[in-house]
Design a protein around this nucleic acid. Structure first.
Lengths: 122, 122
DNA sequence: TTACAATACCTAAAAAAATTATGTATCTTT
DNA sequence: AAAGATACATAATTTTTTTAGGTATTGTAA
């Protein structure tokens, strides 16, 4: 599992890119460690991104042209800030929309309507 | 991808067990092919379970004691009906609940509240 | 009647993704 | 001085997913 989650490990897959892109859309620019803290805070500790998952994802998004980086020195340490490119902004909105559509689709299965039982002929 | 989906391929991962268990909870007993048709119908063609994904999942759930099977002959063909065991019923409810909790958690990230900005100190 | 589509099951191998386990180094608090 | 937090990174293993294949029956359209 590429994220740590209290209750369900399987469900969260495939959402890391969405999370990262959305956070950057909200916050302008962030560095990796900051993203992990932010997610922890937002979800009240329920979701903990692991670094082994986050950094490869950030690198991939950068390679795909959705993010750009700038380094900043904090004392002797170097922080790598990520921010969205124009196509990254598009991708962020797309990903969030996709997620919401996916959830609606799942609700069709998980909360089936009992209305119009004539249609339930298999 | 172990399910075919029109818009998003990454998001659906990890939901197949949930879908199968919930369908069986709703419908009493179903056979594999029937499950694929049912999902297609419920989601208006948006979600197509592949057999390469479904059958291994059914076998795994059976091995885990969540499903039991009974074979039924239809002419010369044999259908394998699956139904929930008591622990399968529990698992079904659990999985659906987990999914809903997961969605709520994701909404914390995807629809962050702008209220109380004093709390947003990182 | 023949061929194609649908029904119905299944699995192994290849490909992709995720996690674990590391590694390095700095800064802050106790 | 040590421990914990900050901050980056990746390579190898493990797990998961998909693709591609296999078998066989039934219904339907040409």
């Amino acid at each position: 599992m590429y994220l740590c989650l209290m209750y369900s490990k399987e469900l969260v897959k495939g959402t890391l890119k969405t999370i990262v892109l959305k956070l950057l859309a909200e916050n302008g620019r962030m560095y990796g460690y900051e993203i992990t803290r932010h997610v922890r805070q937002l979800t009240d500790g329920e979701l903990e991104l692991t670094e082994g998952a986050l950094y490869p994802t950030l690198h991939k998004l950068e390679k795909d042209g959705l993010l750009v980086t700038e380094k900043e020195s904090i004392g002797k340490r170097v922080r790598k800030y990520y921010s969205l490119t124009p196509s990254g902004s598009e991708a962020s909105a797309d990903k969030v929309r996709e997620f919401q559509e996916f959830v609606q689709m799942m609700q069709l299965i998980l909360n089936p309507k009992k209305i119009n039982p004539a249609k339930s002929i298999v």
